[in-house]
Amino acid sequence: MKVADFDFALPADRIAVRPAVPREAARLLRVTADGLADFTVGDLPALLRRGDLLVLNDTKVIPARLEGLIGAGRVELNLIRAVDGRTWDCLARPGKRFRPGAVVRFGDRLAATVRAKDPEGTITLEFDRAGADLMAALDAVGTMPLPPYIARKRTPDAQDRADYQPVFAAREGAVAAPTASLHLTPDLLARLEAMGVERTMVTLHVGAGTFLPVKVEDTRDHRMHAEWGEVTAAAAEAIGRARREGRRVIAVGTTALRLIESAAAPDGTLSPYAGWTDIFITPGYRFRAVDVLMTNFHLPKSTLFMLVSALAGTERMKAAYAHAVEAGYRFYSYGDASLIDRLEVPA
Rank of each mutant, 00 (worst) to 15 (best):
A37Y: 09
D38P: 09
D38S: 15
V41S: 09
L44D: 07
P45N: 11
A46H: 10
A46P: 04
R50L: 03
D52P: 06
L54A: 14
V55W: 05
L56A: 13
L56W: 13
D58V: 08
D58W: 02
D58T: 07
D58Q: 10
T59H: 08
K60S: 12
V61P: 05
I62D: 00
I62P: 00
A64I: 06
A64D: 09
R65V: 01
E67N: 09
E67V: 13
G68N: 05
L69G: 03
L69P: 01
G71Q: 04
A72F: 09
G73E: 11
R74T: 14
V75T: 00
E76R: 05
E76N: 01
L77E: 05
N78K: 05
N78D: 01
L79H: 08
I80F: 10
I80C: 09
R81C: 06
R81P: 01
A82L: 05
D84E: 00
D84P: 00
G85C: 04
G85I: 02
G85K: 07
R86L: 06
R86Q: 15
R86S: 13
D89Y: 11
C90W: 01
C90P: 00
C90Y: 02
L91K: 03
A92V: 10
R93M: 12
K96N: 14
R97L: 15
R97W: 08
F98G: 00
R99P: 03
A102C: 04
F106P: 04
G107W: 00
G107P: 00
R109M: 14
R109H: 11
L110M: 07
L110C: 02
A112D: 03
T113V: 14
R115N: 02
R115K: 14
A116G: 15
K117I: 14
D118P: 08
D118Q: 14
P119E: 14
G121C: 06
G121Y: 08
T122I: 15
L125W: 09
E126L: 15
F127H: 11
D128N: 11
A130D: 15
G131S: 03
A132V: 13
L134C: 07
L134Q: 05
M135P: 08
M135E: 15
M135F: 10
M135K: 13
A136D: 15
A136E: 14
A136K: 14
A136G: 12
A137C: 04
A137M: 01
A137E: 01
A137Y: 00
L138K: 12
A140M: 13
V141D: 03
V141G: 04
V141I: 14
G142S: 04
G142K: 04
G142R: 02
